[in-house]
């Protein structure tokens, strides 16, 4: 499969994607505003989960683990829908950069690993470090697969109503079931 623009690597902002490149200059206050608003919602959700499931210094940080892995599942699904389906313009800045970026955290992850190791629980520290890393990448993969199905379904439906029949006629002219 070839695509005219390079495939996105960074879900927050990939400057090789034309829409990302121009969005800040076009609407700086709106873009930064929705990112801030989303970040607040995500951070409060994370704080709520962490307050509900506290862990001792030597323990496994299940709350942050759950937050980071579920956030990765959601970014995988979100970006698949954003790139394959049709979504409102501020969907990525608000939900991806803001909500999910604010919800997940890298700093608490490494600080908890350091704390567990320093408290003498090296095994827990290593297990938490590896489980989050592997769980996160696996979760993005699962989310991406689910999101592609969803995006393809919505994209195909909208495509039919938007472009009408000519494309489909051309495609079916060579031997498709009539």
């Amino acid at each position: 499969m070839t695509e005219p623009t390079p495939r996105r690597v960074d879900p927050d902002v990939d400057l090789r994607v034309p829409a990302d490149r121009g969005e800040l200059r076009a609407h700086p206050a709106v873009v930064l505003g929705v990112i801030a608003a989303g970040g607040v919602l995500g951070a409060l959700a994370r704080a709520g989960v962490q307050a509900a499931f506290p862990h001792p210094p030597t323990g496994f940080g299940w709350a942050t683990f759950g937050v980071n892995v579920s956030g990765c599942l959601l970014i995988g699904a979100l970006m698949a829908v954003v790139t394959t389906g049709r979504v409102p313009p501020l969907t990525r800045p608000f939900l991806g950069v803001g909500v999910l970026g604010g919800y997940t955290t890298f700093s608490t992850y490494v600080v908890d690993v350091r704390q567990a190791a320093a408290a003498g629980a090296a095994g827990t520290a290593l297990a938490y470090l590896a489980a989050t890393l592997l769980g996160a990448v696996a979760a993005v993969w699962v989310g991406d697969a689910a999101g592609r199905l969803l995006g393809r379904a919505t994209g195909a439906r909208e495509g039919e109503t938007a472009t009408g029949r000519p494309g489909a006629d051309g495609a079916r002219a060579d031997g498709g079931p009539s």
Partner: peptide
């Protein structure tokens, strides 16, 4: 801590980029 550092850093973006690089 919870507000600024938590929102400044991200695991979702990091996880997505890691998978994307591997896929590409």
């Amino acid at each position: 801590g919870t507000g600024f550092c938590g929102a400044l850093t991200t695991y979702s973006t990091f996880g997505y980029e890691t998978l994307r690089l591997a896929r590409d």
